[in-house]
Simulated scan of single mutants.
Amino acid sequence: METITLTSMFWNGRSLGITEMLQAYREGPIVVFFALTTQLADVWFIFLLGGTLYVAGEEMPRLGIDRRRGLFVLALALTYVALIGVLKNIFVLPRPPGAAEPPEIAWIPSVIEPIFHSTATAYGPGFPSGHALGSTMVWGGLALVLNWGSYRTRLSIAGAVVALVSFSRLALGVHYLVDIVVGAAIGVVVLWVLYRLADNGVDPGRVLLVAVVIGVVGLLLGVTFDSVTAVGGAVGGWLVWRGIADSTPAHPTNRQEVVTGFLVLGVTAAVFGVIYALEPPLVVTFVGAATAAGGAVGAPLLGERIV
């Protein structure tokens, strides 16, 4: 007879009953709502968020900051992608049963059904929660570097976003409660370390270097599409920043420069999209990810030079 220990109970039944209880409500508009809110910490969204702050700089209405702090947020996103790959490959713990099965909602148009299914499901290892980790790092990083409102107000909003995203993962049935708690806890620790390492967010190059190191560790654990993409993006961003850090203006000189920078950022986003859609050979994946991340980091300077 198999001996049941506290350790095996923790690793094999991490929900504490919460995920199972919420599955009774996994239908209709509620699922659609949580499938949308979980996007607040999806990779595409946090990259868009960090990239927008970085390119727009102080031209960003109400939320404008100097570009080095904006790049700090973007670097947090790159670090998160590399870090979650390492953690999941170390623990390799399963998701709740049915996490990869999309809920059937008859009134969703067939055209957008594949998109909905991809947002409401999840595959691969489940511990710790990447969305909890990523939302804590990126939204917490935003709270630390923005000048809008009071420090307490910014932290409260960031905490609310993290809580909403984390609950959405439970409601969608793709994570256990322990996955969420541990992911958020790791996010708090990593964010605090990186914020101090980056001199309160004004030296993003150090965070980019950390992303490279973590990406290399992920590559050593397993050469996969995800690990190659993570290390490629980190290397590309770090190398480009090393070359242009002193040349990149901390503040935009005019809005035309910002608009041009956004066009460059859009091209890099398209490159990332093609890579994830096609999953090309690993060498092409590495070069493409490095080019895309490097282009995103170079977008403000390219915008200035083009104008």
Rank of each mutant, 00 (worst) to 15 (best):
Ile112Ala: 09
Glu104Ser: 01
Ala77Asn: 08
Ile105Trp: 05
Gly70Ile: 00
Ile105Arg: 04
Met60Ile: 10
Pro114Phe: 02
Asp42Trp: 04
Thr52Tyr: 14
Ile112Ser: 09
Gly50Asn: 00
Leu133Gln: 01
Thr37Gln: 00
Ala122Ile: 07
Thr52Glu: 09
Thr119Phe: 13
Lys88Pro: 03
Thr37Asp: 01
Leu22Phe: 13
Ala41Thr: 00
Trp44His: 14
Glu59Leu: 13
Gln23Ala: 12
Gly51Val: 06
Ala120Met: 02
Phe34Arg: 02
Trp44Pro: 10
Ala82Phe: 00
Glu113Ser: 15
Gly130Gln: 03
Val31Ile: 13
Asn89Cys: 11
Ser110Ile: 08
Pro109Cys: 11
Pro128Phe: 10
Glu58Phe: 01
Leu71Tyr: 08
Gly85Thr: 06
Ser135Phe: 03
Phe116Ser: 08
Glu113Val: 15
Glu59Gln: 11
Leu53Asp: 01
Leu36Gln: 04
Arg95Asn: 07
Pro109Ala: 12
Ile65Leu: 13
Ile65Phe: 07
Thr79Gln: 08
Ile105Gln: 11
Pro94Val: 13
Gly28Trp: 11
Val81Cys: 04
Thr52Ile: 15
Val32Ala: 12
Trp44Glu: 12
Gly126Ile: 08
Ala106His: 09
Ala24Asp: 14
Gly130Trp: 03
Ile46Ala: 00
Ile108Ser: 07
Arg69Gln: 10
Val43Pro: 08
Tyr123Asp: 13
Ala56Val: 11
Arg67Cys: 09
Leu83Val: 14
Ala82Ser: 14
Ala75Cys: 07
Ile30Glu: 03
Gly51Arg: 05
Leu74Thr: 12
Pro94Met: 06
Leu87His: 06
Ala75Val: 11
Ile30Gln: 08
Lys88His: 01
Ala24Glu: 12
Asn89Glu: 14
Gly126Asp: 08
Leu40Tyr: 09
Leu40Thr: 06
Thr52Ala: 15
His131Lys: 00
Leu53Gly: 12
Tyr25Thr: 15
Gly98Trp: 03
Ala99Gly: 10
Val55Ala: 05
Ala132Met: 11
Tyr80Trp: 13
Phe72Arg: 02
Glu59Phe: 15
Arg95Lys: 10
Leu71Pro: 06
Ile84Met: 01
Leu78Gln: 05
Trp44Cys: 09
Gly57Thr: 11
Thr121Ile: 13
Leu53Tyr: 12
Val81Glu: 08
Gly126His: 07
Ile105Phe: 06
Phe33Ser: 09
Ile90Lys: 00
Leu76Glu: 09
Leu49Asn: 02
Ala120Pro: 08
Ile90Thr: 13
Ser135Leu: 06
Pro61Asp: 02
Gly124Pro: 06
Leu49Gln: 02
Gly51Gln: 04
Phe127Arg: 00
Met60Tyr: 14
Gly51Ser: 12
Asn89Arg: 06
Tyr123His: 15
Ser135Trp: 00
Arg67His: 05
Ala77Thr: 14
Gly64Pro: 09
Ala56Pro: 00
Ser118Glu: 14
His131Phe: 04
Ala24Trp: 12
Phe127His: 04
Pro102Tyr: 01
Ala75Gln: 09
Ala56Cys: 07
Glu104Tyr: 04
Phe127Val: 05
Thr119Asp: 05
Gly50Met: 02
Phe47Glu: 08
Val32Gln: 06
Tyr54Ala: 04
Gly126Met: 05
Val111Phe: 08
Phe91Leu: 06
Thr52Cys: 13
Ala122Met: 04
Trp107Asp: 12
Ile46Thr: 08
Phe91Asn: 01
Gly57Val: 13
Val73Ser: 03
Pro94Tyr: 03
Phe91Ala: 08
Val81His: 13
Lys88Arg: 05
Phe47Tyr: 10
Pro114Tyr: 07
Phe91Asp: 11
Thr119Val: 15
Val73Leu: 05
